[in-house]
Lab assay of single mutants.
Amino acid sequence: RGITCLDHENEKVNMYCVSDDQLICALCKLVGRHRDHQVASLNDR
């Protein structure tokens, strides 16, 4: 089922925000508060 995003409840987390040490979803990176932050794919970890 996967872990859902805290900010976007219908989205699954699939990225890690290095700047905030937090799991995020694609919407967080595209339009959310993490858009200018350094992120890594969970597949890279």
Rank of each mutant, 00 (worst) to 15 (best):
T4E: 05
R45K: 12
N14K: 12
V39G: 06
H8P: 03
N10R: 07
S41M: 05
Y16E: 14
D36P: 04
D21P: 00
S19M: 09
H37A: 04
N43G: 11
H34D: 01
R35S: 11
S19V: 10
D44G: 09
D21V: 01
I24G: 04
V31F: 10
E11R: 06
C28K: 00
V31D: 11
V31K: 14
Q38P: 09
L23F: 13
R45Q: 12
N43W: 03
V31R: 10
A40F: 06
C28Q: 02
I3P: 03
N43R: 07
I3K: 11
I3R: 09
L23G: 12
G2M: 09
K29C: 07
V39I: 07
S41R: 10
E11L: 01
I24T: 08
D20Y: 00
C5K: 03
D20K: 03
T4W: 05
G2H: 02
L42A: 14
L27I: 02
Y16T: 03
C25E: 00
C5W: 01
R1A: 07
L6I: 15
K29A: 13
G2L: 05
S41T: 11
R35G: 11
C17G: 07
N10V: 03
R1K: 05
E11G: 05
E9Q: 12
S19Y: 04
G2F: 01
G32E: 05
R33P: 12
T4V: 05
D44H: 07
T4N: 11
L6C: 13
S19P: 10
Y16R: 15
N14V: 10
E9L: 12
D21S: 09
Q38E: 14
L27F: 14
H34P: 01
R1I: 06
S41Y: 02
A40N: 09
I3W: 05
D44Y: 04
V39F: 03
V18G: 12
Y16S: 06
Q22A: 12
D7V: 06
L27S: 13
D36N: 02
N43E: 15
N43K: 15
N43P: 13
L6V: 12
K29D: 05
N10E: 01
V13K: 04
A40W: 07
R33I: 08
A26C: 13
H37Q: 03
C17M: 02
L6F: 10
N10G: 06
S41V: 04
K12Q: 08
E9A: 14
G2Q: 06
V13G: 07
D21M: 04
D7N: 08
R33Q: 11
L23D: 13
I3M: 14
D44S: 09
L30A: 15
D20P: 01
D7F: 09
L42H: 06
D21L: 01
L27Y: 04
C25G: 00
A40P: 03
N14G: 11
R45M: 06
G2N: 15
Y16D: 09
H37N: 03
L42S: 12
D7L: 07
L6E: 15
K29F: 07
